[in-house]
Amino acid sequence: MNFILTRYIFPINEPLILSNRFNFCLDNPRTEEEIAIIKEYLDVSLNSPDLVYKHYHENRIPIKSTKETTNLLTVESALEGLNKNYSSLDLSVHDFFTKYRELEPLEKLARMWVIARYNDEGEYQRLQEIALEESSNGRTGFFLLDKGNPIIDNSDNLVGFTYFLSLLVHTDKEFYNGQSFILHNDSFTIQHPKVDRFFNLSVMYFGFMSYSHEIKNLEDHWKSFYHIRDELASVSKKLDGIIDDANQEKILFIANLLKVVGNNLKDECAKLVTLVSIIELLLTHSPDYNRFNIEDSISKQFRLKASLLVYQNDKSKDIEKVKIRLKEIYSQRSNIAHGNFKSLKDYLRKEVKKSKEEDISEDIVLERLSNDLFNFIRAIIEEYIKDRKLVDFLKEN
């Protein structure tokens, strides 16, 4: 088994299964080698010489509580807060601090970092053995891994799967823009310690979360393992239960698209086109070329089928408004896909002009189209999990 870091830090007594089919789970590091790898990364990212952090802010918090850090958040005070506020609520926290009370702060943090495991089919161990043998013979080099290697394929699938799950469990409905609870997108980053501001930000958020077992803002719940754990386990089980040989490739492809949007796409136009393609993949079919205007027919399928499922998912929504919004979205997708950027610009200017918000901009209008798309996709996938036959029927008809 190999692993990738998540953004979560919390002790786990038993692994949380993400997928039996793909052999994915969340766990803490269990071997001394795993713990040492994470501890070294912590030490470099949080505890390098001050000169390293001199010219830029890297979200670093002090490690130990001293007179100089009184009233400041530190790794040590965060650990104390977790023990104080969660031990009576969670047996895994109680057990952890009972067993590891005397360890140094970074050692404790390393042992409770939540990692996502995947099956590398023994490839990592095999490569280690080859490297050791070559080194003993005085030869050095490096491995080039590509598609087809279990480390690449299975880790890519794991990362995409976490983006898929993040879409389904996130609680930040208004401002969610595709982020995942995974921290790194591969299992190699952790092997090369560096000052990592996103890694450090996870430590900082862990500190904030540790000061109370209550998180007042619902949108922040999914950022805390303790608060999202049960929902994550439930959603993972439901999703895994509907994946079979017939739809596995489709699920992994959608997962990869969500990963691309959440991690790699900074351009809002490209993001919009990609997100629309997910709904098209799930709900539309190729129309009869002899009977229909292709673009118009797919647009009709898109807005009618999607609005039906979004309404089915939440009947408090106004289905007519959902359909109108989907029509807007598809029109701008078509403007982008066909290079009609003047029409897109005209739409954005019109929306800014008619808005009563003081800080509205064309960029914000475009971002909100994508934000709505994330919510629509989430609703459609939830309906797919509830009744796959219905969604497949809609796609084919």
Score class of each variant (00 low, 15 high):
residue 247 N to W: 04
residue 249 E to V: 06
residue 249 E to C: 01
residue 249 E to H: 03
residue 251 I to G: 01
residue 251 I to N: 01
residue 252 L to Q: 08
residue 253 F to P: 00
residue 254 I to G: 00
residue 254 I to H: 00
residue 255 A to N: 12
residue 256 N to L: 08
residue 256 N to R: 14
residue 257 L to M: 06
residue 258 L to K: 04
residue 259 K to C: 04
residue 262 G to E: 00
residue 262 G to P: 02
residue 263 N to V: 07
residue 264 N to G: 02
residue 264 N to H: 06
residue 265 L to H: 02
residue 266 K to C: 02
residue 266 K to S: 10
residue 266 K to M: 02
residue 266 K to D: 06
residue 267 D to S: 11
residue 268 E to P: 11
residue 269 C to A: 07
residue 270 A to Q: 14
residue 270 A to D: 11
residue 271 K to E: 01
residue 271 K to Q: 04
residue 273 V to I: 04
residue 274 T to D: 01
residue 275 L to H: 09
residue 275 L to D: 13
residue 276 V to D: 01
residue 277 S to F: 10
residue 277 S to T: 14
residue 277 S to N: 10
residue 278 I to K: 12
residue 279 I to K: 01
residue 279 I to H: 01
residue 284 T to M: 06
residue 284 T to K: 13
residue 284 T to I: 13
residue 284 T to E: 01
residue 284 T to P: 11
residue 284 T to C: 15
residue 285 H to S: 15
residue 285 H to T: 15
residue 285 H to F: 05
residue 286 S to A: 15
residue 287 P to V: 14
residue 287 P to M: 03
residue 288 D to W: 03
residue 288 D to S: 13
residue 289 Y to F: 12
residue 289 Y to K: 15
residue 289 Y to R: 15
residue 291 R to H: 14
residue 291 R to D: 01
residue 291 R to M: 14
residue 292 F to L: 10
residue 292 F to E: 08
residue 292 F to H: 10
residue 294 I to W: 04
residue 296 D to H: 15
residue 297 S to P: 06
residue 298 I to Y: 02
residue 299 S to Q: 12
residue 299 S to Y: 03
residue 300 K to N: 12
residue 300 K to A: 10
residue 300 K to L: 11
residue 300 K to T: 12
residue 301 Q to E: 02
residue 303 R to M: 06
residue 305 K to P: 10
residue 306 A to G: 02
residue 308 L to H: 11
residue 308 L to W: 06
residue 309 L to Y: 08
residue 309 L to Q: 12
residue 309 L to H: 09
residue 310 V to M: 01
residue 310 V to S: 00
residue 310 V to K: 01
residue 310 V to G: 00
residue 310 V to T: 02
residue 311 Y to E: 10
residue 312 Q to P: 00
residue 312 Q to N: 12
residue 313 N to M: 06
residue 313 N to V: 05
residue 314 D to Y: 07
residue 314 D to Q: 05
residue 314 D to S: 13
residue 314 D to E: 08
residue 315 K to E: 04
residue 315 K to S: 08
residue 315 K to N: 10
residue 316 S to H: 10
residue 316 S to E: 14
residue 318 D to H: 09
residue 320 E to K: 14
residue 320 E to Q: 11
residue 320 E to A: 12
residue 320 E to V: 14
residue 321 K to T: 13
residue 321 K to Y: 04
residue 322 V to L: 09
residue 322 V to R: 11
residue 322 V to Q: 06
residue 324 I to R: 13
residue 324 I to F: 09
residue 326 L to P: 07
residue 327 K to R: 09
residue 329 I to P: 11
residue 329 I to V: 14
residue 329 I to E: 09
residue 329 I to A: 07
residue 329 I to H: 07
residue 330 Y to D: 05
residue 330 Y to S: 11
residue 331 S to K: 13
residue 331 S to V: 09
residue 331 S to T: 15
residue 331 S to H: 10
residue 331 S to P: 03
residue 331 S to L: 09
residue 332 Q to L: 13
residue 332 Q to Y: 09
residue 333 R to S: 03
residue 334 S to P: 04
residue 335 N to P: 02
residue 336 I to L: 05
residue 336 I to K: 04
residue 337 A to P: 04
